[in-house]
């Protein structure tokens, strides 16, 4: 058979790659949920890594720089989830832009975030506004 060496080399690399991807997927994935799904989920089981995108309730923000600790509620307009984040307040946090929180539920309705990202008001922001109107 032609190119036998080629094929063997390719099979080996593809095999290693598949193994790496499969083992990499263990524990490094999270589910992307809406607030509603997340609340339903937190009743059943907690401790799983999830991501949510939502708006911050401006009046709920409590920021204690001494700790540092940031506590706030996120909302989809109907239901709220209380989020605690032990790190500095991200830039643009108070701007009203949506945030992405990643972390785990510690109790129903109580979310411990390992990461809080503010969707940065980047170049495509204006398009987004137009779409929403």
């Amino acid at each position: 058979m032609k190119n036998k060496k080629n094929i063997i080399a390719t099979v080996v690399v593809v095999g290693v790659l598949a193994l790496l991807i499969i083992s990499g997927m263990q524990g490094n994935t999270g589910r992307y949920l809406t607030i509603q799904e997340a609340i339903a989920d937190s009743q059943r089981e907690s401790g799983k890594y999830i991501q949510m995108e939502a708006k911050v309730v401006p009046t709920s923000v409590k920021w204690d720089p001494k700790q540092p600790q940031l506590v706030f509620d996120i909302t989809d307009g109907k239901q709220n989830i209380n989020v605690t984040f032990y790190d500095v307040k991200p830039d643009n946090f108070d701007s009203g832009y949506p945030v992405i929180v990643e972390g785990k539920f510690t109790a129903p309705g109580k979310f411990l975030a390992g990461k809080v990202l503010v969707k940065c008001p980047s170049k495509y922001e204006e398009e987004a506004k137009k779409q929403n109107q």
Partner: peptide, 28 residues
């Protein structure tokens, strides 16, 4: 693109976090 694939297949959007990329790409 895994979030898109998983959503299409299972209906659940499953995201892949930074450690995945690091743990696969570092040995390579």
């Amino acid at each position: 693109i895994f979030p898109l694939i998983s959503e299409a297949v299972t209906g659940n959007k499953i995201t892949v976090s930074i450690p995945f990329f690091n743990s696969v790409n570092a040995p390579l």
